[in-house]
């Protein structure tokens, strides 16, 4: 565990808390893509099956349990508790366009052809593109609430910080995992456009709006 990895985890934790708080305090999930949240729940469920097979540390277990539980809680808030506020007309990205190619890729490019390893690989690939329905929704409506921008920024920073962590681990531990690295870079690149808007608009006190 190095400082970049820890910062990445904290950023990830913060993103989830911001999202849950936004929905809970405003009693509304307007502007949030339920589809991205379903994909994230699928990501955590398939990745953390090793909770049943291997124990790493109390920290590791606690974070995994939190990520799984919070992702289902978010889905509950969007599709049940506050479903009247869910903006389904703008959440039109087709999930199967992401899930199916990623599933095929996980079967073809993996470290080991075993069920747990394929599911882990699937989850890594899926995470890299899971935010697309959310970004698609923002581009469709042309704007995002400031709190939603903070959520997206923290979520994007999490994998960006992991990349620095991987560079660090490569140099100081001789450790690297190409599947995680490539997927992590793809994931971070998808946020670049948003990062630019966040720095040039949201940090200057303006709402995030896209040029028409």
């Amino acid at each position: 565990m190095n400082v970049f990895r820890l910062s990445g985890d904290v950023s990830h934790l913060l993103a989830i808390l911001i999202l849950l708080m936004k929905i809970w305090k405003t009693r509304s999930c307007a502007g949030i893509s339920g589809k991205s949240q379903i994909l994230f729940a699928l990501v955590y469920t398939t990745r953390y099956l090793d909770l049943f097979t291997s124990f790493i540390s109390p920290y590791n277990t606690a974070m995994k349990v939190f990520f799984i539980a919070s992702s289902y809680a978010t889905i509950y808030l969007i599709y049940l508790k506050f479903k009247a506020t869910y903006d389904r007309n703008h959440d039109t990205f087709r999930m199967e366009f992401l899930v199916l190619p990623v599933l095929v890729l996980a079967f073809v490019v993996n470290h080991d052809f075993t069920p747990l390893e394929i599911l882990w690989t699937f989850s890594i690939y899926l995470e890299s593109v899971a935010i697309l329905p959310q970004l698609f929704m923002v581009s469709k409506t042309g704007q995002a609430e400031t709190i939603t921008s903070h959520y997206l920024f923290a979520l994007g920073m999490y994998r960006a910080l992991y990349i620095v962590n991987w560079v660090y681990r490569y140099y100081f531990e001789g450790f690297y995992d190409l599947i995680a690295i490539i997927a992590g870079v793809v994931q971070t690149v998808l946020y670049c456009d948003f990062f630019y808007l966040y720095v040039t608009k949201v940090l200057k006190g303006k709402q995030l709006t896209l040029p028409a």
Partner: peptide
């Protein structure tokens, strides 16, 4: 060194 068992990351 290829990762397989070292899944300590989240």
């Amino acid at each position: 060194q290829v990762n397989k068992q070292n899944k300590d990351e989240l």
